[in-house]
């Protein structure tokens, strides 16, 4: 190795105003640069690089800030327009049935997050997990319990530590009957809050490419957005979904608990 390599690394650090560079090191370096033409040349070269890279910064177009703020304001207006949305008994039963049968609950609007959180927080719900589903997944409580849980607003959405998603083994018949309820639910909801935006949901999910192969199982979550429903599957503790535009499988960069908080926040 070039004996001057050590000095050259110091040059790099000197130009970066490295606070860890001691006074003695700096003095030694400057002394060396005064007598070593090669290292002095490296100093000039590195300094010229800095100038060239950082030198002329381009002005961003004015529309950058306009577009950002415009999009943010639009999103805030969408959020403010969501009205209060109470889960009625009918909706609660529908959702509970959906869980009992093992179909992913369709979540919309303001209380989606609250509903999810209350599912998780309900320990009866978690205890009954073992019966109808694999050990690591929770199943639905009795319908009476779930109705209670639903009608009480979730005090703490952060309690979503337990997995309460059902592995879908729904029979077609079961899906049929629950879809009747779902239709009633939709009619109920039709004059209620608009769904979260797909763009905001995708941005939040922070998906990345993944090479995982998922078995063709029905999704654990179906989240209604303004551009259709997004299906998510929980596997190995991570959330997966299909990118709506490319169809490619993406692994979410956020976990289930954060997803619940996000949905909770949508309603605020």
């Amino acid at each position: 190795m070039n004996p001057h390599e050590h000095y050259r690394e110091l040059i790099s650090r000197l130009l970066d105003e490295d606070t860890a560079l001691t006074g003695e090191e700096q003095a030694a370096l400057r002394a060396h640069l005064a007598e070593c033409a090669e290292c002095a040349a490296v100093y000039e070269a590195f300094a010229a690089l800095s100038d060239a890279i950082g030198g002329d910064l381009a002005e961003p177009p004015a529309r950058l800030r306009e577009n950002v703020m415009g999009e943010i304001r639009r999103e805030e207006i969408r959020r403010k327009n969501r009205r209060s949305f109470r889960w009625t008994g009918l909706v609660a039963v529908a959702a509970a049935l959906a869980l009992l049968i093992g179909v992913a609950p369709r979540l919309r609007g303001r209380n989606a997050g609250a509903q999810l959180a209350s599912y998780a927080a309900d320990s009866t719900f978690a205890k009954e997990a073992a019966d109808s589903a694999p050990a690591e997944k929770a199943a639905a409580p009795s319908s009476a319990e779930s109705v209670k849980a639903l009608e009480a607003p979730a005090a703490d959405a952060g309690a979503a530590g337990e997995s309460f998603v059902v592995e879908n083994s729904a029979a077609a018949v079961a899906a049929e009957s629950s879809s009747d309820y779902a239709m009633a639910v939709d009619a109920e909801e039709s004059d209620e809050a608009p769904a979260p935006s797909m763009a905001a949901l995708l941005a939040f999910l922070d998906g990345r490419d993944c090479a995982v192969q998922l078995e063709a199982e029905a999704p654990d979550y179906m989240i209604e957005t303004d551009e259709g429903a997004l299906a998510l599957t929980l596997a190995g503790g991570k959330l997966y979904y299909a990118d709506p535009s490319s169809g490619a499988l993406r692994e979410a960069g956020v976990g289930e608990a954060e997803l619940l908080r996000f949905l909770q926040n949508q309603g605020e």
Binding site: P60, L64, E71, A203, F204
Partner: peptide, 15 residues
């Protein structure tokens, strides 16, 4: 760059 900058700011806002 414009697209990335916009996306980054929007992400920052939402997080």
């Amino acid at each position: 760059a414009e697209d990335m900058a916009q996306e980054a700011f929007l992400k920052a806002y939402s997080s």
